[in-house]
Every structure is written in structure tokens, then in C-alpha cells.
């Protein structure tokens, strides 16, 4: 049974917007990393994420069937149309916060994309096949860095614990499920994310334990990004920067 078009579109926007917004955030680091190798790695991560955005939003535009492109979706939608989880739009903070955010997201992606490889939708499966190779590298790197900094000096440990404490309440949203997820699960396009939490927790607990960090007990979760109901204040500023040229000079080609 093929998924209903609007629901499939909604699912694709969630994937594409996660990659786009996080990719944008990571790209803000350009030239400012603590060490040259990290500048290269951050640029590489941003590059992969924007590449994934092109695939997800390209397919979303095709499914939408209004003759739009991935660029139209990225640069001409307003904040309430975005479907990324709140975690991805949070500010970079220090390098530790950026890498902790990356790890918490990469860990989810690594679990989720592995399931999408077997999607009943061939295009989704093909995108996942390409993206999962990149994410395997991302999660390895972000996990190593989280461990290195968590189990580093007293200062680096304190900073990583603070980053985890700040970001943990944004983890739960990745596992929220609604009618879109139910429809994707029923049509075999994608698993219901709620069913992946245990696997995620096992992965994250292992890495954060190696990092000598303490996972906060509260399961409270900020929500509203993946449904578009309520983003953070940060997203509007990000879009103002990202969309500026397209908005200021409508219809120009670049």
C-alpha cells in the first residue's frame, strides 16, 4: 500500500529539514574550529548534510508535484513550514555543545537510516543507502569526540556535562510519533521512531558512559519542531540569514 501523498511529503520534509538546518548550523563554524583538522571535519559534515538535504527535498518537491525544486523548499518556506526537530536548530554554543548535539542526532540517524534501507519506497531506500554511509562516519567521529572531551580535563568534562544537560530535553522529540509515522509504518516506508528508542538509548548510554558523563534522569521533552507547531526563536534568525538572497532578489538565478 503506497503512503498517501501528503503524509509522504510530510515525512520527507522532516528528513530534509533535519539535514538542512543542522547542516546550516554546522557550516557556521567555518574557519573558527579549535584545530585545523576539526575545521575540515566540520565542513565535511556540513557538506554531507546539505547533500542529503538535496536528495530529501528534491524528492519532496517531486512528490508535492507543484513544479518546485529542493531550493524552493529550502529558501522560500517560512518557519512554520519547517519540520526539523528542535535539536537541530539550537545554537552552536561552544565546540562541546556543537559536538554533543551532533552526537545525539547522529546516533538517532544511524539507527533510523539503517531501517530506511529496507523502505518499501525505492527512492527513500536509495537516499538512505547513500546517507547511511556518511552517517556511519559522522557518528563514529562525534562519539569519539564526546568521549575524548568528556573523559579529558576537568574543564572539558564540565563543559560536556553542561552541553548534555542542556540538550537532553531535546532528544525525546526525535521519538515522538503521530499520524504521519503511523502511516509510514503501515505502508512500510519508515519505522515508527517510538520503536527505536531502546536501541538509541543503548548506543547513547554506552558512549556517554565511556565519556564519564551522566545522562539526566528526566524524560521531559521539548516538542513542536517536527510537527511545525512551535519552533524555537532561533529558527527565524537562521532562516533570515539563509534565505536572504532568494528573498531579496526573487526569481533570480544564481
Amino acid at each position: 500500500m503506497a503512503a498517501e501523498k501528503n503524509l509522504l511529503l510530510e515525512f520527507l520534509l522532516r528528513q530534509g529539514d533535519n539535514a538542512l538546518i543542522l547542516g546550516h548550523r554546522v557550516s557556521e563554524w567555518c574557519g573558527h574550529a579549535p584545530v585545523l583538522e576539526e575545521d575540515i571535519a566540520l565542513a565535511n559534515t556540513a557538506l554531507d548534510l546539505i547533500g542529503q538535504t538535496q536528495m530529501w527535498l528534491g524528492y519532496a518537491a517531486e512528490v508535492q508535484g507543484e513544479g518546485k525544486t529542493a531550493d524552493d523548499l529550502a529558501f522560500l518556506r517560512d518557519a512554520w513550514d519547517f519540520r526539523n526537530v528542535l535539536l537541530t536548530e539550537l545554537p552552536n554554543g561552544d565546540f562541546g555543545q556543537t559536538l554533543m548535539r551532533q552526537f545525539l542526532f547522529d546516533a538517532f540517524q544511524s539507527v533510523y537510516l539503517a531501517r530506511l534501507l529496507g523502505s518499501s519506497d525505492e527512492t527513500v531506500a536509495a537516499i538512505a543507502a547513500k546517507a547511511s554511509k556518511e552517517v556511519a562516519y559522522h557518528v563514529e567521529r562525534s562519539a569519539d569526540t564526546v568521549v575524548g572531551l568528556g573523559d579529558g580535563t576537568e574543564e572539558s568534562h564540565a563543559r560536556m556535562q553542561a552541553a548534555l544537560d542542556y540538550l537532553w530535553p531535546y532528544v525525546g522529540e526525535m521519538f515522538e510519533s503521530d499520524a504521519v509515522d503511523t502511516a509510514m509504518a503501515e505502508s512500510g516506508v519508515a519505522p515508527d521512531p517510538a520503536t527505536l528508542r531502546e536501541e538509541y538509548d543503548a548506543l547513547v548510554t554506552r558512549v556517554l558512559t565511556d565519556a564519564t558523563l551522566t545522562i539526566p534522569e528526566s524524560r521531559f521533552a521539548h516538542k513542536g519542531g517536527r510537527t511545525g507547531q512551535s519552533h524555537t526563536e532561533h529558527l527565524g534568525h537562521l532562516l533570515t540569514t539563509m534565505q536572504w538572497l532568494q528573498r531579496a532578489y526573487p526569481g533570480n538565478t544564481w
Partner: peptide
């Protein structure tokens, strides 16, 4: 700003 990162990773190694 990156000093704590370099020190942290070195200490871990």
C-alpha cells in the same frame, strides 16, 4: 576558545 578542546583531547589520549 579552542584551548580547552585541545587540552581535553590531549588529556584523554
Amino acid at each position: 576558545d579552542g584551548a580547552w578542546v585541545r587540552d581535553g583531547l590531549l588529556a584523554h589520549a
